[in-house]
Amino acid sequence: MSKKFTKDHEWISLEGDIARIGITDYAQEQLGDVVFVELPEAGREVAQGNDAAVVESVKAASEVYAPVSGEIIEPNVKLEEEPALVNQDPAEGGWFFTMKVSNPDELNDLMDEAAYADYLKELG
C-alpha cells in the first residue's frame, strides 16, 4: 500500500495489519540535525493522535504521534545509535516503529501523497 500522511508530518504505510511509521522529509528538515530519538517499547498500546516517540534536535524536542491506534510491534533500535538516519533517510531507513493496527478505518482520516503535497504548499 502507498503511504498516508498526518497533518503533524508523520507517514504510515500498511501491509496486512502491520503499519510502519516515520516522519516526513519536511519534518526532518524543520527539525534540523536529529541528535536523539526515544522509541516506544514493543507491546505498548497507543491511541491515534497520542505521543508515541520523541525526536530531538540540538535546539528542541518534538513528539511523534501515533497516526492510528494499535500495539507497538518493533521500534527501530538503529535510531538509538544513529539518530541522524532520520535526517538522511526519513522515508525508508529512518522509520520509527511498526505497529499492529487495531482499526484500519482510522487510515481513512489521513492524507494521501497528493493531498499531503497540497497541505505542504498551504504551509508555504
Binding site: V55, K59, E63
Partner: peptide, 17 residues
C-alpha cells in the same frame, strides 16, 4: 510530530497544526 519545546519564540506550540 510537533514541537514540545522551542527556545526562541518563548511559546510552547504543542497541539498546534
Amino acid at each position: 510530530m510537533a514541537n514540545s519545546t522551542t527556545d526562541f519564540d518563548g511559546t510552547n506550540s504543542k497541539g498546534t497544526d
